[in-house]
Design a protein around this nucleic acid. Sequence first.
DNA 1: CTGAAAGCGCTTACAG
DNA 2: CTGAAAGCGCTTACAG
Lengths: 333, 333
Amino acid sequence: MDNKKLTIDDIARELQISKTTVSRAISGKGRIGQETRDKVLRYIKENNYKPSAIARGLAQSKTFNISLVMPGDSSLVDLPFYHGFLWGVSNMATKSDYDVIISMVSEKDITQLVRLIENHKVDGVILGRTLEDDIAEKYLKEKGVPFVTAGSSLDPTVIQVDNDHRSACRELTSVLFSKHITKVALIGSDMKTIVSKNRLEGFKDACMEYQVPIEEDLIYLDRDNESKIEAAVEDILKKNVECFICMDDYICGCVLSKLERENVKIPEDIKVASFYDSILLENSKAVNVSLKFNVTEMATACCNTLLSCIDKQEVPIKTLLGYEVVIRGATQS
Amino acid sequence: MDNKKLTIDDIARELQISKTTVSRAISGKGRIGQETRDKVLRYIKENNYKPSAIARGLAQSKTFNISLVMPGDSSLVDLPFYHGFLWGVSNMATKSDYDVIISMVSEKDITQLVRLIENHKVDGVILGRTLEDDIAEKYLKEKGVPFVTAGSSLDPTVIQVDNDHRSACRELTSVLFSKHITKVALIGSDMKTIVSKNRLEGFKDACMEYQVPIEEDLIYLDRDNESKIEAAVEDILKKNVECFICMDDYICGCVLSKLERENVKIPEDIKVASFYDSILLENSKAVNVSLKFNVTEMATACCNTLLSCIDKQEVPIKTLLGYEVVIRGATQS
DNA sequence: CTGAAAGCGCTTACAG
DNA sequence: CTGAAAGCGCTTACAG
């Protein structure tokens, strides 16, 4: 690599001072004369010296690495989220002189994560998604590794950062109700995920608030593949509803294309709302109401919380992030 | 973290042997008695001891980390590639006990990468994409950091792994020509990228081979946004061609939706071929011929090449990977 | 086959 | 304000 690998020793020798002093000049810790410090700092600048993060790590029993755990099996619609999240975390970590080591896991295989922890290569972990019965979460908790989850966990002792899906979905639903659109059908995905449950709750909250009866036969859950979703759509179309509410954008995409094939016009014949607003749908004029969450904010919050955690500072168990209700075109009034 | 952080010292003390011996038992290097080794190994297993990668790194002046450089500004269509690539690299690295630190860069900002190198946190780097005038590539070369590029570089001294785009595109084009579809229009994207150039070359190769004259007015380059692509489509439609060849899937997507809006039927009115075959188009019955590349193979090759490189082994400067020509539906005959 | 010792490149009490 | 020394947890000549 670099032909001349400068070390703190070289500098000390060159400047005729002890390496203790050099170290202090760099870190800023401990008392040190202004002159001496300047001398060292200047030399460092001129010779482009950068301390070895590894050595510093060893001495401080830290790694200055965090791991971001990503699902290797994530579906196409989730990719933009994970990409943005990765970017956000990476940027934030960099600012604190941390680096992020990726570990790819699947629902039942967390060997990469385990290796990372066992090899003592990270100071903490961000869990990029949460599952109801999450082995990664369980493992980390058991090992006592500092970690935060992006998304909610059912375990109240777990540090978590999440968008306020429940409120958001309540509010989106309320928007419809307030426009007297009350005959709505909800299509939801895998109810094993915590976020799905929260969204459903938010929907019900709005029903309560507006005293709209919850019609169970207009709520279609666990529609986790295209055919199940299309079946739901067909069924719903017979029921003369005013609006589809899709729990996520995968569903929404399927619904839209199904409606197009069925020659159903949006918003004339029926309206469509989505509890999410990914780039994939961002430009779709067909979605009348949707929710927008800020990935970067999420990433930043996760990263900062984790770093504070590693730093032994107090952090809130649960951080709830905001959202935005997006109303488009014809639904406005 | 773990309450009981076992170290090699503890083991040595416990077993009444020197830590040298313990180290040897673990690494397998150096002569050591079978009995002693077994004793150590057993103890290690029972007490679930794992050596600190950081400490080992310091002692060996290695980090056991590689960095994967990803564009933070990549567009939606590229996400599946990068995700799959990340997954492949991560898996492969793990097998060799390496970890991958992500660094996100943009065309003109490589500060994250620079930090990583300067802090001595990685042994080598994989460049996830190549640009014609790549500052990351230039930086790494200058610093003497081992690295390989996923994709071709113009610099003949750079270790690179790439799909054989030129041959692939030649072959795809030949498929059309061999079916006597010779009146074709080519729509290409940013000609600053090396891959675009290769694809164009491949196309021309096929023209040569089949003695089909290259009609420059049927070649539309640098169509890097939707409106430019649509303009090209409109223009081409007037020219009575038999087949569109799209240089990548972003273009192909735009072309398809434009054609749909124009009510042009595929493949009756016109055929569509793509020099790429991402998941995004995978299920599109509308694309008649396309190319398929194996991301995992690419990731594996990059990773292995880099690790060999770090290991001071000889590696081929250029590794060319295969491809598959995918022929669908109506174009078959 | 095994061990004492030096070293990887830093940090940090402790003493002055 | 500054330094000698021990230590972080391993590896690796060198010697026996």
